[in-house]
Computed example of a mutant assay.
Amino acid sequence: MKAKLITPIGVALSLLTLASCVSTKKYKAMKAEAGRLRADSAAFSNRILSLDGSLSKSQMDQELTNSKLQKTNAELNSSNEQIAAQQARLAELQDRIERQRAATVALRKTIADALVNFNAEQLTVTTKNGKVYVSMSEKLLFPSGSAEVNPEGKDALSQLAKALNQNTDINIDVEGHTDTVPITKRFPDNWALSVARSTEITRILVKDYGVNPTRIIASGRSQYLPVADNSTPDGRARNRRTEIILEPKLDKIMELVEGASGN
């Protein structure tokens, strides 16, 4: 009979022991799960913090990019304004150069018309490098080896002076030229002869015909700027000349050029 009583008690104890073991395992599993959840939570928190940091850095980078973009746009607008100003200045410069070219062409015609009564052996009127060249032969102006202008030469200078006095915005260079044959009378060398001839012509233009002296430069080039071969009589005759070089004033053009280079 005791044996019958013990068996149910043992079974009950066994069940309690088994329940206790199951509860312990479940507890440990739940504890482990809680640990994993805490670890995951911490990882998520760290990830969130990292994302917040990345977001802040991205925002800062974006702000910096926007600032650089605004600066670039401002510089671009400034550059566009400078380009527009330069283009306007260039257009004005081109317009002035074209008007200067037209003025030179008109001046050449005016001078050629004023000297129409003289033939090509006496003088020529040409344009070169934006200037008008009036080349007068020795035969027209001077006796051989002399710096005294003859009557026909004075007549030519008189006609030229009328045109010069009607066109006051013109600079005037008077250049004397010789051939290579050394001078033997009155002058020590061809330099002196070429200078004496240019200054005598300048004196006549100013004193006799009223050309403003501030417009004129007189110089002598001697034999060193020939236009023909000095080995022939014809070439030497062509080299013995006085060139009156007329150049429209370039003050406004130079102001534009200097203004462009200063920007």
Rank of each mutant, 00 (worst) to 15 (best):
L246E: 03
A114M: 08
I216R: 02
I48D: 13
A228C: 00
K25G: 02
L49G: 12
N230F: 06
I172R: 02
F118Q: 05
T110K: 09
Q87G: 06
A237D: 08
D40R: 09
S261M: 10
K109C: 04
N230A: 06
V134S: 08
S58G: 12
R197A: 15
R47N: 15
L107Y: 02
R238I: 09
A19T: 13
L69H: 13
R108G: 09
Y209F: 11
N80D: 07
E200P: 04
T232P: 01
D229T: 03
E258L: 12
A34G: 05
E138T: 02
V105R: 07
V134T: 10
S231I: 09
L69I: 08
Y209K: 10
Q100M: 11
L164C: 12
K128F: 06
A260D: 11
G176R: 00
D251G: 13
S137I: 01
Q82W: 05
G235M: 03
Q100Y: 08
G153N: 07
E152W: 05
E138P: 03
V11N: 04
N77V: 11
S261N: 14
N167I: 04
Y27Q: 10
N239C: 00
E200K: 11
S50L: 08
N171C: 02
D173R: 01
Q70D: 15
K31C: 11
N80F: 02
T7G: 00
L115K: 01
L141G: 06
F142D: 08
K131G: 03
D169T: 03
A88K: 01
N171D: 09
Q70Y: 13
Q100A: 12
K28A: 00
V22Y: 13
K71S: 14
Y224I: 08
K139D: 14
R241Y: 06
P248C: 12
Q100I: 01
S194C: 13
K131M: 14
V174D: 01
E121S: 15
D251R: 07
Q82M: 08
L51P: 09
S41F: 05
S45H: 12
S45W: 06
D251C: 03
I201S: 08
K162R: 14
S222P: 08
A237Y: 06
D189G: 07
S56E: 14
G235Q: 02
S54C: 15
A161M: 02
T17K: 11
S198E: 04
P8H: 01
V227P: 04
T202W: 02
A120S: 12
T168N: 06
E255C: 07
K2Q: 07
T202H: 04
I201M: 11
A163V: 09
V211P: 03
A29S: 14
K207M: 01
N263P: 07
T168F: 04
S58L: 14
D155W: 14
G145K: 07
T180D: 15
A34K: 07
G176V: 00
I172G: 00
Q122R: 10
S78E: 15
M30R: 09
K154I: 05
S158K: 07
D155T: 15
E98I: 11
Q223R: 09
A114T: 06
L49C: 09
Q122H: 13
W191I: 12
K26A: 09
R36K: 15
D95M: 11
A112K: 08
E98L: 15
I97L: 09
R186G: 09
